[in-house]
Amino acid sequence: MLITTHRDIGAAIRERRKLLGLDQAELASRVGVSRQWLIQVENGKAGAGIGLLLRLLNALDLKFTLDTGKATTSETTLSQHDPSAVLDRVRKGGKPS
């Protein structure tokens, strides 16, 4: 999933939490934050502390990666940017690319 806004981060977190079968209270407890804070993050509220956000991503076993957006090899294919292909790879235990 390409993340370009704080709302995208919130949507990705909500999606992953649900995929893992966690409710907001359980995830908030694991991360050490309030359920209200998690609700705000999932709703895309700007200003969430980066340290807490990184702890949240870690609790969901999500990795935060930055890249230049430029293809670095000729091996980059359209399927790497196809959301369905990315989800299929993640569901099979692979990296989202």
Score class of each variant (00 low, 15 high):
1 M>A: 14
1 M>N: 08
1 M>G: 15
5 T>G: 12
5 T>E: 12
6 H>F: 13
6 H>Q: 13
6 H>D: 14
8 D>P: 10
10 G>Q: 04
10 G>R: 03
11 A>C: 03
12 A>I: 01
13 I>E: 05
14 R>E: 08
14 R>H: 04
14 R>A: 12
15 E>V: 01
17 R>T: 03
18 K>C: 06
20 L>G: 00
20 L>C: 04
21 G>Y: 08
22 L>M: 14
22 L>A: 03
26 E>Q: 13
28 A>D: 11
28 A>C: 10
33 V>T: 05
33 V>Q: 04
33 V>N: 01
34 S>R: 08
35 R>S: 10
37 W>Q: 05
37 W>N: 00
40 Q>A: 14
41 V>F: 09
44 G>P: 09
45 K>P: 00
48 A>T: 10
54 L>W: 00
54 L>G: 00
55 R>S: 12
56 L>C: 15
58 N>R: 14
60 L>P: 11
62 L>I: 14
64 F>P: 07
66 L>V: 15
68 T>M: 07
70 K>T: 07
72 T>V: 14
73 T>R: 01
73 T>I: 03
74 S>H: 13
75 E>I: 00
75 E>Q: 14
77 T>C: 09
77 T>N: 08
80 Q>W: 08
82 D>W: 01
83 P>W: 03
85 A>F: 06
85 A>K: 05
87 L>Q: 11
87 L>A: 15
88 D>T: 09
89 R>C: 05
90 V>A: 09
91 R>M: 13
91 R>W: 09
92 K>N: 15
96 P>Q: 02
97 S>T: 02
